[in-house]
Simulated scan of single mutants.
Amino acid sequence: MNTILYVEDEPDIRAIAELALQTIGGFSLTSCASGKEALAVAKTQVPDLIVLDVMMPEMDGPETLRRLREIPMMADVPAIFMTAKVQPNEIAEYHALGALDVIPKPFDPLSLAQRINDIWHRA
């Protein structure tokens, strides 16, 4: 089973994505409401993929990914950002951080799992 560490501060979006990824996609999911929570979880479990929101309070998605990369077991785990911030320069920044790709928000819950699978297997 493919496991995803999913980081999203907005409860409604998190709930929809959880449903889409677990029920439709069949993924095993660990959801976190903040970058800080993701860092704590990452010390005890290594996912197959990280999916991160970009705009979060306290620690944003790019900073969370940088901090996750400092944990040796997490250094090579592929990552995807989900965000409404999809200007070409912003997407270039996410790729420079090592993200596989960016999924624009709002996303289609029915196709989210397939979209993640496509990005993951293309990499």
Rank of each mutant, 00 (worst) to 15 (best):
L49Y: 03
I91C: 09
A38I: 00
L19N: 07
S28K: 13
N117Y: 01
V51K: 02
G26K: 04
R66G: 11
L39A: 05
M73V: 11
R66Y: 10
E10M: 09
L97T: 11
M74A: 08
N117V: 00
S34E: 07
M74R: 04
A92L: 11
I13A: 03
S28W: 02
T23L: 12
D108T: 03
T83D: 01
S111Y: 09
E58A: 14
Q87P: 03
L100W: 03
T30P: 02
P11R: 09
I119P: 04
L19W: 14
I91E: 08
D48L: 01
V77P: 08
R115D: 07
M73S: 15
A79S: 14
R14N: 08
L29T: 04
I119A: 01
K85F: 15
L52G: 11
E37W: 02
G98D: 12
N117C: 14
I13R: 05
V46C: 13
P109R: 10
N89K: 13
R14K: 13
L112P: 04
T23D: 15
I16D: 00
F81R: 04
I116N: 11
I13W: 07
K43T: 08
I71F: 05
D60V: 13
D108K: 09
L110I: 02
P47S: 02
I50N: 07
F27W: 08
E10W: 12
D53S: 03
K85A: 13
S31I: 05
A96R: 12
M59V: 15
L100V: 14
L100A: 13
D12E: 15
T44M: 03
P62M: 02
K43M: 14
E70S: 06
V41W: 06
R122Q: 10
A40D: 14
M1F: 04
D48A: 06
E90P: 00
